[in-house]
């Protein structure tokens, strides 16, 4: 049986949900090896958290160059592993870091690349949703090792617990991958809520909140949802940039997206319109966001959301 690489993805010091999603897709193609790139001495602890999904092997590569040089160092090491172990495909999480690693790996291994897949089949055909989710495309890499980045929250992960065999490998990192130096790194601030790209439900607030996100947050908490924001809200400093949904923020595709006080500019829609269900709360009946809503309430979010929050609490008790 052929062998597939996935680039293990971590949130803090734990494997994130996308790691199991990548493994689930990868297992359709072949036996899954999760590659873990870590600081010297940190690999075993990280690898121990790569324990969900159909993963048969974990390969740890340790080097302080990863933290010092970032994307180019990881890409170099991964490309060299691909050249020596010739996997049938490589699956990587589709976020800025993952796409840039994939980009460099594709160049270094002379391989075709597909980004933002929402599904991958046994013959490494990728499904993508393009043009704002209006068109489904199936594509296939025709040269080299298929390098495919997969959108978080698109594939239903097999979360059975795994006890993969753990090995260590070394991978060469060339001088050209060390040209940019990282002098400081600040991880994103994590709150108590679910991660935006992993959440089943996302509740977002826009300019209509007028800077007061309490109603949005309370409603989100009643649903166990993540909180997102439009660019108008992040630009005004009402909510951290890391919560921005849209073209220049995060792409989310939850079961349910609730847009509150958001007009629905095309750049916002680009990040949320493939959500399974969309609910809108907006006082302007003409707001374009209503065009893509399954359910819309024309009303003031400061009235509608507290009532909905109370309604949900009442149902729970």
């Amino acid at each position: 049986m052929s062998n597939v690489f996935i680039l293990a993805d971590f949130s803090g010091d734990k494997a994130s949900k996308i790691t199991a999603e990548l493994a689930t897709a990868g297992a359709r193609i072949g036996a899954v090896t999760a590659v873990v790139f870590a600081d010297a001495g940190k690999g075993a602890a990280l690898a121990a958290t790569v324990n969900q999904g159909p993963i048969t092997n974990v390969l740890i590569v340790e080097s302080d160059d990863f933290a010092k040089h970032g994307v180019p160092a990881v890409a170099d090491a991964l490309a060299n592993l691909i050249k020596s172990k010739t996997p049938a495909a490589v699956l990587i999480a589709s976020h800025a870091f993952g796409k840039e690693v994939a980009a460099r790996v594709a160049v270094l291994t002379e391989s075709g690349i597909i980004t933002d897949a929402v599904d991958v089949s046994a013959d490494a055909t990728a499904t993508q949703l393009v043009f704002g989710g209006s068109t489904t495309v199936h594509s296939k890499v025709s040269h080299g090792t298929p390098i495919i980045t997969v959108r978080p929250n698109s594939i239903e992960a097999d979360l059975t617990s795994a006890t993969p065999a753990i090995d260590n490998a070394s991978a060469e990192i060339g001088d050209a991958a060390k040209l940019s130096a990282i002098s400081s790194s600040q991880p994103p601030v994590k709150g108590g809520r679910p991660e935006l790209t992993e959440a089943n439900i996302v509740v977002s607030g826009g300019r209509g909140t007028n800077g007061d996100f309490a109603a949005v947050e309370n409603f989100a908490d009643s649903l166990g949802a993540a909180v997102g924001a439009s660019r108008a809200a992040t630009d005004a400093g009402w909510y951290p940039h890391s919560h921005q949904v849209g073209q220049t923020g995060k792409t989310v595709s939850p079961q349910l997206y609730v847009a509150c006080g958001i007009s629905g500019a095309i750049q916002h829609r680009a990040g949320m319109q493939t959500s399974k269900s969309i609910i809108v709360v907006n006082k302007d009946p003409e707001a374009p966001i209503f065009d893509i809503a399954d359910f819309g309430v024309i009303g003031d979010l400061f009235n509608v959301l507290p009532q909905a929050t109370a309604g949900i609490s009442a149902k729970k008790s």
């Binding site: 068109t135 489904t136 495309v137 199936h138 893509i292 809503a293 399954d294 359910f295 819309g296």
Partner: peptide, 19 residues
Amino acid sequence: WSQVNDATPRPPRAAGVKV
């Protein structure tokens, strides 16, 4: 180095309920 096999328009979202 990658090819599109097929492209199909997705059904438009069914008109939602507005209250």
